Computed example of a mutant assay.
Amino acid sequence: MARPGSQIGTGELGARLRDLRESRGLTQLRLGRALGVAVSSISSWESGAKLPPPTRLADYATFFAAGAVSEGLPPENALTGEQREERLRLKQELDRMRTASDEPGETEARQDFWHFPDGGPVRIVTGGLSQKHWSPLGNPGEPNFLSLARCADLDAAVELFGHVRAANPRSQVEIRLEDLGDDDLRAHLVFLGSGATNPWVEWLTAEWPVRQVPDDGIADGSVFEIDGERRLTPVFRGDQLVEDVGLLARIPNPNNLRRTLTFCSGVFTRGGFGAVRSLTDLELRERNLAHLNDNVADLNRFGLLMRVPVMRHVTGTPDLQNPANRLYEWQPRT
């Protein structure tokens, strides 16, 4: 049942479904097989991205009221009297949570990639410019000191900060310039920039098939290397950048598995900005999220490299439904 004193809202149903699954030591895959649904459905219900249909909540109630873990959904007439009472109680609890989740404005938030249903803190972590690139206002001794004047991915940070605040009105959202404390490491973390500017990225992505490495042909940027062999590089027309490569990836936070680590990076800053805008841009974010929902089994464990167009110095938003814009996709190891 709902935790005493907790508010039943957008994230409460998803958290309750996750608690039920974890109480039996089940993976999302095994529960999906038992209920006869795709693992992506289990993931989206637990994350709060989608509401399960009432019939599926009835299946949850039947399955977990039955007690022993089985490979399939037991028929209702196989339940004992005590189990039927537990099924009814659990179904009523889940139905109340589902109804409470349908608050005005909440449905749209749940369908946002940048919505974190547990209401936990969010830290947007950017890399820092080298001192030679600081604005004069980036000097702490300057009376008009601005800490973000040293930010290497300011466009992406500002774009994302406003969007995340709107999608998570109950969460504490902050932009951080590399410095993280112990509590921050257990938050939802969004890392902007490559390992060249944001040292946390290199540490956290060491086991991925994709890494960012220096390239002799690219000044002031790190290219994407796949499995230590293939390299994806930006495109120039003369000395003008016309296409960057962007990275969008998410994994569970190893310091708090109920929260996430998200990475938005590029060979240059345009790639990271385009990766952010792929799921914040008003015109394309729904199309792009629909592509991810249809093709990614678990939105908390995936990676994608994409083309990011740059037109007259303006960063465009990639349309992920265009196969030409999806350069490489993978599922991180668990």
Rank of each mutant, 00 (worst) to 15 (best):
Gly5Tyr: 10
Gly9Trp: 08
Glu12Phe: 00
Leu13Thr: 01
Ala15Ile: 07
Arg21His: 11
Glu22Leu: 15
Arg33His: 11
Ile42Leu: 11
Trp45Phe: 09
Pro53Arg: 09
Pro53Ala: 13
Thr55Asn: 13
Thr55Pro: 01
Ala58Gly: 07
Asp59Cys: 02
Phe64His: 01
Ala65Lys: 06
Ala68Met: 12
Gly72Tyr: 07
Leu73Gly: 02
Pro74Phe: 05
Ala100Met: 07
Asp102Ser: 13
Asp112His: 06
Asp112Lys: 05
Asp118Leu: 15
Val122Leu: 08
Thr126Arg: 00
Gly127Asp: 00
Gln131Tyr: 08
Ser135Asn: 11
Glu142Gln: 12
Leu148Cys: 09
Ala149Leu: 04
Asp155Lys: 08
Glu159Cys: 10
Gly162Asn: 09
Val164Trp: 00
Arg165Ala: 12
Asn168Gln: 10
Pro169Glu: 02
Ser171Met: 11
Ser171Leu: 07
Val173Gln: 02
Arg176Met: 07
Arg176Ala: 13
Leu180Tyr: 05
Leu185Trp: 08
Val190Trp: 03
Ala196His: 04
Pro199Gly: 10
Val201Tyr: 04
Glu202Tyr: 01
Glu207Trp: 06
Arg211Ile: 07
Pro214Tyr: 08
Leu232Ala: 05
Pro234Tyr: 01
Phe236Leu: 14
Phe236Val: 06
Asp239Glu: 15
Val242Ser: 05
Asp244Trp: 01
Leu247Asp: 05
Glu283Ser: 13
Leu289Glu: 03
Leu289Pro: 05
His291Met: 15
His291Trp: 15
Leu292His: 04
Asn295Leu: 13
Val296Trp: 04
Val296Gln: 07
Asn300Asp: 14
Gly303Val: 04
Leu304Gly: 04
Met306Tyr: 02
Val308Asn: 00
Val310Ser: 01
Val314Thr: 12
Gly316Tyr: 02
Gly316Asn: 04
Leu320Thr: 00
Asn322Gly: 06
Ala324Met: 08
